[in-house]
Simulated scan of single mutants.
Amino acid sequence: MWGKTQNSGQICIAPDYVLCSKIVQERFIHYVDKALKEFFNDRAKTTDDYGRIVSIKHFDRVTNMLKNQKIAIGGHSDPQDLFIHPTRTDRRKS
């Protein structure tokens, strides 16, 4: 999570996905949420420790990818501030 949240994920060490078994998935989501709370104390938008998206073009690109997704963690955004909360979509198959 540290690598993914550096510079709002706009860095070469930001992983795009995690492969895990269904058995591990729920536990993994729990620990992702726990790590984000440790990093930002539910204050990602107001802390100086969490960056912003580099431009409105990229803000729109990322928020468009989140449309019609089931959000497991985060999902909040603010175009005025180019802020996108650390977000995890739920891509589990039904």
Rank of each mutant, 00 (worst) to 15 (best):
M1I: 10
M1W: 08
W2F: 13
K4H: 14
T5K: 02
Q6P: 06
Q6Y: 14
N7I: 04
N7H: 12
S8T: 01
G9D: 05
G9R: 10
Q10V: 00
I11Q: 08
I11Y: 04
C12S: 04
C12P: 10
C12W: 07
I13C: 10
I13T: 14
I13G: 06
A14H: 05
A14C: 13
P15A: 11
P15S: 03
D16V: 07
D16T: 08
Y17W: 02
V18K: 00
V18G: 02
L19G: 13
L19F: 15
C20H: 11
C20G: 11
K22A: 15
K22G: 15
I23V: 07
Q25H: 15
E26N: 15
R27C: 06
R27S: 06
R27I: 00
F28E: 05
F28I: 08
I29C: 08
I29D: 07
H30S: 13
H30K: 15
Y31N: 07
Y31W: 01
V32Y: 02
V32L: 14
D33V: 10
D33P: 10
K34A: 08
K34Y: 04
L36H: 01
L36D: 03
K37P: 02
E38C: 15
F40C: 10
N41A: 13
N41I: 06
N41S: 14
D42A: 05
D42L: 05
R43S: 11
A44L: 01
K45C: 13
K45A: 12
T46H: 03
T46A: 00
T47L: 05
T47G: 09
T47F: 04
T47M: 07
T47Q: 05
Y50T: 11
G51V: 02
G51D: 11
R52D: 01
I53V: 14
I53W: 03
I53C: 09
V54C: 14
S55W: 11
I56F: 11
I56K: 15
K57F: 04
H58R: 10
F59V: 08
F59Y: 15
D60S: 09
D60E: 12
D60P: 10
R61K: 14
R61E: 08
R61G: 02
V62T: 10
V62K: 10
N64L: 01
N64W: 04
N64C: 03
M65D: 01
K67M: 03
N68W: 00
N68E: 04
Q69D: 05
Q69G: 00
Q69K: 13
Q69P: 10
K70Y: 02
K70C: 13
I71N: 03
A72D: 07
I73C: 09
G74C: 04
G74T: 04
G74D: 01
G74M: 12
G74L: 13
S77F: 10
S77D: 02
S77N: 09
S77A: 11
D78A: 04
P79Y: 03
Q80C: 00
D81V: 05
D81A: 02
D81R: 06
L82F: 08
L82D: 02
L82E: 01
F83Q: 06
F83N: 00
F83S: 05
I84C: 01
H85M: 11
H85Y: 07
T87G: 06
T89F: 12
T89L: 10
T89V: 15
D90R: 14
D90W: 08
D90Y: 06
R92N: 12
R92E: 09
K93A: 08
S94L: 13
S94Q: 11
